[in-house]
Simulated scan of single mutants.
Amino acid sequence: MDRIFTHVATRIATAAGQPQTFLVALLVILGWGLSGPYFGYSDTWQLVVNTATTVVTFLMVFVIQNSQNRDAAAMQAKLDEMLRALEKAREQFIGIEHLTDRQIEDLRAALEREVGKEPGKPGTADDTVERLLERY
């Protein structure tokens, strides 16, 4: 079941992110809007688009969440591998995504203090990083 859902969700997410899909959706909505006078702007005419958009939105929430979960897990695995492979990296950081928000915030603050900056301040970024960001 997981493999089928992953395959279908990936295909739907890929298709939904294409410009052609946006264009099709736009054309459908324009067609619906232009058909209003023909149907006398009836309650049924309105119900059709409301129901369709609600169903599509409801289902897309699950597809998008699935894609984001897989992307985040893959990124985390890659970062964990980098921590494991780099000699000077602290392997204790592997798995910190399972900590609470408060624990992660405390860890961030400790790391900022470790590099000599005040936690939570914009000045934490190195001057080089700030200059690079200014260029773009």
Score class of each variant (00 low, 15 high):
residue 100 T to R: 07
residue 109 A to F: 10
residue 99 L to D: 11
residue 110 A to E: 15
residue 43 D to Y: 04
residue 33 G to M: 13
residue 79 L to M: 10
residue 92 Q to I: 14
residue 44 T to A: 07
residue 6 T to N: 13
residue 8 V to E: 06
residue 123 G to R: 07
residue 27 L to F: 12
residue 118 E to G: 12
residue 61 V to C: 00
residue 44 T to V: 10
residue 29 I to G: 09
residue 97 E to N: 09
residue 38 Y to K: 02
residue 111 L to H: 08
residue 121 K to Q: 15
residue 17 G to C: 01
residue 115 V to N: 00
residue 19 P to D: 04
residue 35 S to A: 13
residue 83 L to A: 07
residue 102 R to N: 07
residue 74 A to Q: 15
residue 85 A to D: 15
residue 80 D to S: 13
residue 67 S to E: 02
residue 54 T to Y: 10
residue 59 L to W: 10
residue 25 A to T: 11
residue 44 T to I: 09
residue 124 T to S: 05
residue 30 L to I: 15
residue 43 D to F: 06
residue 117 K to P: 09
residue 47 L to H: 07
residue 7 H to N: 12
residue 19 P to C: 00
residue 113 R to W: 07
residue 110 A to C: 03
residue 88 K to A: 13
residue 131 R to Y: 05
residue 7 H to L: 07
residue 71 D to H: 10
residue 38 Y to M: 05
residue 23 L to F: 11
residue 113 R to Y: 09
residue 58 F to M: 08
residue 101 D to K: 11
residue 28 V to K: 01
residue 35 S to V: 03
residue 37 P to V: 01
residue 80 D to Q: 00
residue 90 R to A: 12
residue 134 E to H: 01
residue 4 I to F: 00
residue 103 Q to L: 02
residue 83 L to V: 10
residue 30 L to N: 06
residue 112 E to Q: 15
residue 10 T to W: 01
residue 50 N to C: 00
residue 118 E to S: 15
residue 121 K to Y: 10
residue 12 I to T: 11
residue 91 E to K: 14
residue 5 F to L: 08
residue 71 D to M: 13
residue 14 T to D: 14
residue 61 V to I: 07
residue 72 A to K: 08
residue 58 F to I: 03
residue 71 D to E: 14
residue 29 I to R: 06
residue 22 F to L: 06
residue 106 D to H: 12
residue 99 L to C: 02
residue 116 G to Y: 07
residue 77 A to P: 10
residue 128 T to Y: 00
residue 109 A to P: 08
residue 81 E to L: 13
residue 4 I to T: 02
residue 48 V to F: 08
residue 94 I to N: 01
residue 80 D to I: 03
residue 121 K to W: 09
residue 113 R to F: 05
residue 116 G to W: 05
residue 35 S to M: 08
residue 78 K to S: 14
residue 95 G to K: 02
residue 27 L to N: 11
residue 55 V to E: 07
residue 49 V to F: 07
residue 104 I to E: 06
residue 49 V to I: 14
residue 43 D to Q: 09
residue 134 E to F: 03
residue 10 T to Y: 00
residue 107 L to E: 06
residue 24 V to W: 06
residue 132 L to K: 02
residue 133 L to A: 11
residue 87 E to F: 11
residue 120 G to E: 12
residue 6 T to G: 09
residue 94 I to P: 04
residue 55 V to C: 04
residue 98 H to C: 02
